[in-house]
Nucleic acid binder design. Structure first.
Length: 257
DNA sequence: ATGGCTACGATCCGTAGA
């Protein structure tokens, strides 16, 4: 199974790029974030026409997550059980025996802000939710925009970012709490080049300078991690005209034996 | 120097992202 995640930053703006990328990369499953679109305006027909079933939790203007799959999606669940939230940030579905969760973790805006407190609360709720999912599904994949750069090597300029939102110690502790559930950062299962990122600021020629952060991740349960053969970031879509500020991240899994 | 893009939904600027 080829599994991908991509924060598209408006699916209506990015639809042509998404369709092109799906045609080329041919992922079996892709988790999308920041649809910025409600269900009624989601381009379901265009995606079904190229063979993808869609499950989404949509919202006008902000947030919004989806899972697209070339095979049927079962047991779709929106949100985090027991965590009331207006913001549409989580959707889960089962595909070919794999429990897939698409997450758009809060940005947090600034350390100490209300949004930062919400981010940490949200991560705590996610952790409990994933612990429950993991108890039911040994084959669990959690993919999305985590808005956390786990380590300094995931940051283009750790000195400049020190203590800032996305890298602050409480956020990294929240990330490690997910790993403590037995989830593995698929990207770090393999030897990787230095300075690989998944997001670059639109401003200040961030992409041209490779001034980025690695904040989009595919987490895999131990059973899936053992079946993982590669994990990469595809920078190609970020080079196009009018790109998303995020690049797709991929993980390939061997078929169940 | 705390800016700089981009998208949205409201208008011709404010909010949010990261």
């Amino acid at each position: 199974m080829k599994l991908a995640t991509w924060n598209v930053n408006s699916i209506r703006v990015r639809l042509p790029q998404l369709l092109d990328w799906l045609a080329g990369a041919k992922p079996d499953v892709i988790c999308l974030q920041e649809l910025k679109t409600e269900e009624a305006k989601f381009p379901r027909a265009d995606l079904e026409a190229i063979g993808y079933a869609c499950a989404l939790s949509g919202q006008k203007t902000y947030n919004g997550v989806a899972i697209l799959s070339r095979t049927p999606l079962a047991d779709v669940v929106e949100g985090i059980a027991g965590f009331a939230d207006e913001q549409k940030r989580v959707i889960a579905a089962t595909v070919q025996g794999v429990r897939v969760v698409s997450v758009y973790c809060p940005n947090g805006q600034a350390v100490g802000s209300d949004k930062y407190a919400y981010k940490l609360r949200w991560f705590a709720a996610l952790k409990d939710n994933l612990a429950a999912e993991r108890a039911i599904h040994p084959r669990l994949a959690v993919a999305g925009d985590f808005n956390v750069a786990p380590e300094d090597r995931d940051v283009h300029d750790p000195k400049a970012w020190e203590g800032q939102v996305h890298v602050s110690e409480p956020e990294r502790a929240a990330w490690r709490a997910l790993l403590a559930l037995g989830l593995k950062d698929s990207f770090r299962l393999f030897e990787q080049p230095e300075k690989v990122y998944s997001w670059w600021d639109y401003r200040m020629m961030g992409f041209r300078r490779n001034a980025g952060l690695r904040i989009d991740h595919v987490l895999l349960s131990e059973e899936l991690a053992r079946a993982c053969t590669s994990s990469t970031v595809d920078k190609a879509p970020r080079k196009l005209e009018r790109p998303s500020d995020h690049a797709p991240v991929l993980a390939e899994l061997r078929a169940e034996s």
